[in-house]
């Protein structure tokens, strides 16, 4: 990628319409360009063969196609892959591709590092290095080997999506528009720790699913796990969610990492069912993958299953997320580019 030129990849149809107008190209060229950017497997302006040579030259004077291939790929014993990408600001981000029987899920990053400081997360250990553009988010789907077979996208990689909401919404627009990837928003889930104003805007401006990192229903305990609780308590997050209708196809789920002896008790089951009463949702239980410097451990399988059963018995649909890619540090909470960014 030529970083001295502005990337076309990551621009919306509206933005491309301005680009072509500025260059004096016919208006319909914008739609042709979106085809090349988001639907066809080419990686250069030169490859946009239905544009005249002169128009391609005009475009290439100011713009770069804008996709970036991964610099490294690691493959897990279970088939999960972890891709490493370099951003336009010469920082590293990671992307996980999780193959399953019927689906290929890509877990994308929305920031370089993270500001949120959650106790149990590896990404938090590197602090915050920068925001990703919509193009850099969508590139994580477009530029992997499995691009053609991606069925689901989760914004659960590095970073807090609602701390970079403009670019996240733009990336969803590119993924779901007819002129873009044409995906159903029901194939996309954005995961957040619950920054309330941004969450409300996301719910109004997008149709994608929402997942909230809950991890404990108790205020003081959540403060010690997730500093965001101080500014946006989970009770307030849930109160706001109750104003939205999730009885249709749009889904809200709550992610709950289980920590041994901390948040896996009957008291937590009771308080969770009280907190979530009146909201159609599911809880996704996640096994904790230990990170250095964190005094937390995962409970045994029996406790996890018992916790799930108790919640289901109280009428809350509860599932356990399969741990994937743990051997290559691609599993939930393990993504980090601290070392690579130090070397740059």
């Amino acid at each position: 990628m030529d970083t001295s030129k502005e990337p076309l990849f990551g621009k919306t149809l509206k933005e491309l319409t301005l680009v072509v107008a500025d260059l004096g190209l016919p208006k319909f060229t914008a739609l042709q360009i979106t085809d090349w950017l988001y639907k066809k497997p080419v990686g250069s302006i030169e490859g946009m063969s239905n544009l005249s040579k002169k128009n391609r030259e005009l475009l290439a004077e100011k713009y770069d196609f804008g996709t970036v291939l991964p610099t490294k790929v690691q493959v897990s014993a279970d088939g999960t892959k972890k891709y490493l990408f370099v951003t336009g600001k010469h920082q590293f981000i990671e992307t996980a591709m999780i193959p399953d029987e019927n689906r290929t899920t890509v877990c994308v990053s929305s920031q370089v590092g993270c500001k949120m400081g959650c106790l149990f997360c590896m990404t938090a250990k590197q602090g915050f290095q920068g925001q990703l553009s919509a193009g850099e988010i969508v590139n994580q789907i477009r530029s992997i080997d499995e691009a053609a077979s991606v069925s689901n996208i989760v914004y659960m990689g590095m970073g807090e999506p609602f701390d970079n909401l403009d670019e996240v919404l733009k990336s969803i627009e590119i993924l779901t528009s007819d002129w873009g990837f044409g995906m159903s928003p029901r194939r996309i889930t954005v995961s957040s720790i619950g920054i309330v104003p941004a969450m409300l805007r996301f719910l109004q401006e997008s149709e994608a699913h929402l997942a909230i990192s809950l991890h404990t229903p108790f205020d003081e305990q959540r403060k010690s796990l997730m500093p965001v609780q101080i500014a946006y308590p989970i009770a307030e997050v849930v109160e706001e969610l109750k104003k939205f209708d999730f009885s249709g196809q749009r889904r809200v789920s709550f992610e709950y990492i289980l920590f041994k002896g901390l948040n896996d008790t009957a008291l937590h089951v009771k308080e969770l069912s009280r907190l979530l009463n009146g909201i159609k949702c599911r809880i996704n239980l996640i096994r904790f993958h230990p990170v250095p410097g964190t005094p937390l451990v995962s409970p045994d399988e029996e406790t996890i299953l018992h916790f799930k059963t108790q919640l289901n018995d109280r009428g809350i649909l509860t599932t356990i997320r399969a741990s994937r890619g743990q051997d290559i540090y691609a599993a939930c909470g393990l993504l980090s580019t601290k070392e690579q960014n130090k070397e740059m």
Partner: peptide, 11 residues
Amino acid sequence: PYGQIYAEIFF
């Protein structure tokens, strides 16, 4: 103990 540590982050 981490339960005695509280953090306010900038964001």
